[in-house]
């Protein structure tokens, strides 16, 4: 009767030897086959972007592959996503792949954060806090002014883009809150993107027979909806014109703003308008294509003075209604 030799359970050292066969590191030896790095990369690039983060946790070799630009380049090409949306200097940062991930998953650098920019879904997403005169209304085609011009802006779908919000003879105000974290922009990602700017724009016009006036601003809130800072654009008053114009401003963020970004969670886009004649009906300012986008900058902003300390909003209408709405900001 032969003696049976029981195999001793492998100790840790042997395990490590076991997983690095012929100098092939763990992660490139899949199901016993030594797989070249470029092929593992190709396999991982086919994994849906939502699942890729998980692969980070499988082993070090996979984690290293996921942090490489070459893998993300394949993912971008496969998804027909524009590689240059994330500028090279951001891609080249340590952890720059995280911005690539967020761009592919949430389009953080190529979307309008305002989902209903012109009222094609009525007031969905907007909160009206002042409904003066005969109140806000949505016009499917602008009354008493030109139709909205055709613009070659990717953020606006053609069907979504014929309508506008129209104010009345008393101040009509409303705001749109963007939860940046939910939109895929975490504080760490914003820090990685520095320097960058938040661009705000909208189109506006009056009617052929009546002038209009409006204010607009952007506020930045922390996770408790407390105001961090704001940008209030100068008041614009227009005579009786029917041609659409664009108003825009930008917030720039540089390395000095890291502290502020740690807390930043919400953006509030506010606009309010009315007519200048006090006419019954809807002769007030018209708004369309409200737009908030993020754009990486190539150099530090010269000063961050566009970020103003908090001040009260709306000289003759906004402030009281905001207080009434019971919000901190």
């Amino acid at each position: 009767m032969g003696t049976q030799v029981l195999q001793r359970p492998a100790d840790t050292k042997e395990l490590i030897k076991d997983i690095t066969v012929n100098g092939c590191p763990n992660g490139f030896l899949i199901s016993g086959q030594a797989i070249p790095e470029t092929v593992v990369e190709l396999i991982l690039s086919k994994v849906p972007v939502e699942d890729l983060l998980k692969c980070n946790l499988v082993c070090k070799a996979w984690r290293n592959l996921i942090s490489r630009k070459s893998l993300w380049k394949i993912c971008f090409d496969d998804n027909k996503a524009n590689w240059n949306t994330v500028p090279e200097h951001v891609r080249d940062k340590p952890n720059g792949w995280m911005v690539l991930y967020a761009q592919l998953r949430n389009e953080i650098l190529s979307k309008n954060y305002i989902k209903n920019p012109s009222g094609h879904r009525q007031f969905e997403g907007w909160t009206i806090f002042s409904n003066g005169g005969d109140q806000w209304r949505v016009e499917e085609e602008p009354h008493g002014s030109d139709p909205l011009p055709n613009l070659d802006i990717p953020f606006f779908g053609i069907d979504e883009d014929k309508s506008c919000f129209t104010s009345s003879f008393g101040w009509c105000s409303k705001y749109y809150i963007v939860n940046l974290w939910r939109e895929g922009l975490t504080p760490e990602l914003m820090k990685l993107m520095l320097p960058f700017k938040i661009k705000c724009s909208q189109m506006y016009t009056a009617r052929f027979d009546c002038g209009g006036v409006f204010d607009w601003e952007l506020r930045l809130l922390d996770s408790e909806e407390k105001r961090l800072c704001q940008h209030k654009a100068p008041r614009i008053e227009v005579p009786a014109i029917m041609e659409w114009q664009t108003a825009e401003f930008a917030f720039e963020f540089g390395s000095d703003d890291e502290e502020l970004l740690k807390d930043l969670q919400y953006l509030v886009f506010i606009h309010e308008g009315k007519d200048t004649q006090f006419w019954a009906g809807h002769y007030g300012m018209k708004f369309a294509r409200s737009c908030v986008t993020f754009e990486c900058l190539y150099s530090q902003p010269e000063n961050s003075s566009s970020v103003e300390p908090p001040e009260t909003f709306g000289k003759d209408g906004g402030v009281s209604t905001i207080v009434r709405s019971g919000r901190y900001w």
Binding site: I30, D51, K60
Partner: peptide
């Protein structure tokens, strides 16, 4: 890989965590 847990992936591919 898609839709599996990290442990399931390691098992399926006979990979070991080396963290």
């Amino acid at each position: 890989i898609t839709g599996r847990t990290v442990d399931e992936i390691r098992t399926a591919f006979k990979l070991k965590s080396d963290f």
